[in-house]
Design a protein around this nucleic acid. Sequence first.
DNA 1: ATGAAAGCGCTAACAT
DNA 2: ATGTTAGCGCTTTCAT
Lengths: 335, 335
Amino acid sequence: MESNIKDVARLANVSISTVSRVMNMPEKVAIETRVKVQEAMKELNYTPNALARGLIYKRTKSLGVLIPDISNMFYSEMLHGMEHAAQRHHYNLILCNTDNNKARMLESLNMLKEKQIDGLVFTSEPVYPDYYEVFKKLQIPIVLAATHSLEFDIPSVKVNDEQASFDAAECLIKHGHRRIGMICGSITDNVTAMPRLQGFLRALRVHDLETDVDSQVQFGGYKFEDGYEAMGQLLRKFPDITAVFASSDERALGAISYLHEHGKSVPEDISVIGFDNLRLAQMSIPKLTTVGQPLYQIGYLAVEKLDHLIQNEHVGELRTYVRHELVERQSVARR
Amino acid sequence: MESNIKDVARLANVSISTVSRVMNMPEKVAIETRVKVQEAMKELNYTPNALARGLIYKRTKSLGVLIPDISNMFYSEMLHGMEHAAQRHHYNLILCNTDNNKARMLESLNMLKEKQIDGLVFTSEPVYPDYYEVFKKLQIPIVLAATHSLEFDIPSVKVNDEQASFDAAECLIKHGHRRIGMICGSITDNVTAMPRLQGFLRALRVHDLETDVDSQVQFGGYKFEDGYEAMGQLLRKFPDITAVFASSDERALGAISYLHEHGKSVPEDISVIGFDNLRLAQMSIPKLTTVGQPLYQIGYLAVEKLDHLIQNEHVGELRTYVRHELVERQSVARR
DNA sequence: ATGAAAGCGCTAACAT
DNA sequence: ATGTTAGCGCTTTCAT
């Protein structure tokens, strides 16, 4: 039942080249033959085979996307943007969940290369030197989304984390807070967690507040549970705290949950500011004040940048930094 | 720099069939030639071309996934399950976001067919007769995830919505509630919204409570904002309500938000039970009591079922119903 | 305006 | 154990 170009040619009484022509340069074929061929196509329910085409054109209009955890809202919002950009530029997205697992990532990369993807979007993780080696071997355009590399020249789209964190901390300070804690990502992550820490500390310094990382900062994972845990530890180290900067919305919600369970109300007793502005930031009680990054846009732009690379047009800037935005809701109060 | 089987053959001083053999049946080639070929592959950084293979095998090890909105946690959790099953069975997932837009869906389906996917996962939307026509033309195995069709014989994986809703309502009733409202999906959706409504009503009837759809049920979208709106309307129609069944977690959170803003506390004044058990159900204050559906598992099983179909093994049951689970947290109180 | 034939990178008979 | 060749479905010269 699967029909191919030959079947169409036979039914329409023309050669396969004519069929090919009506698909790719219809104006070059006589109107009546064209119609005849189109009717044959319809009758046979013909669909061209992209594998055969890809073999010839040496491009597939498929992009690979490597994501650590799709069930995380952070990534799914970015992915949404990527998908829309992909549709717009007639690409398909092949999705690979890496679970932050290197072996799995290498495996995925291999599959993607075999499938002859035209380009790759790599998200969030830092580009370690061995990753870079793999990328080079891939021989295809790559764009980093929500991450970047200062060591290597790989195009990227992300927010300025240092400045965004600075703004978060300053928001707290401007609301009159002086004893401010931070719930931060892993110390080993110097593409996201460290710049955020630095931005936080810079704001404190600029406003003549003391900084003591040991007592003010709690490191940990980015999840709700991690935020919950971290809030507990922070409170123990730094009991008279009046505000907390949690550098992801999930962490912030975890922190709020901890505070709630321990009889502190937000923002009356303690203010909390988050980072990301995921959709859930509007769903919490109190609604979360946070520094928003335009995740959808990051995904969208990453794919468009990739498209430019593939088309060999001007790539524009190597590292694109998109604007963050302070979204003031209810979790930060004046003191 | 892109090397192919010919390059490898030349470098290893063998024919291309020998190279092909070391890839597909290495035991059939002399150990020393094999090593020679493998070295050549490594040196040339050779990767087989899946397009060429697919052309011959007539299967691509790619699956299409149609999803209305990936940035929705509901879908991203399912997608996560699908992706893991896909990895396990050596498939790639080609992701298409349909935005609930029919034209876009048809376009995606067309692209997917051209790319010769081995199978398709279709999520959530009801299968309208015209969709079914399109599916038939596709000529490939299809599995429905979190939806099903009683009209057409298409394999599916989902929860028993009627019973799940029954359990939700009964939970409320067993906590002593008698004046219970429901926030429901669209009346036109008879694959999900209607069964849930029926389950709700059945529970009321079984427990000898009056049922009056007009005053007790508010229809609307599945989002947070919709839940917020609906809660307002419901309260106006049915002021002395003591409990609400919101048939999605997002709606439930919206309802809670409305109640909170209007001076009613949950669960002291009004109890709320949700549906889905998304990760955010644990993040709210109060933590949400809800009827959980195993979304990850639904995705996982859908892909495995698709694999069975593709392998032409026994499909097992046509319609698989997975277990839901009542997750009691803090948003429902005894009365 | 249309057709014949080569070739994209690979596998699978069929030789040897 | 290895090589030769046809062909998967298509595009693209090159003829006519």
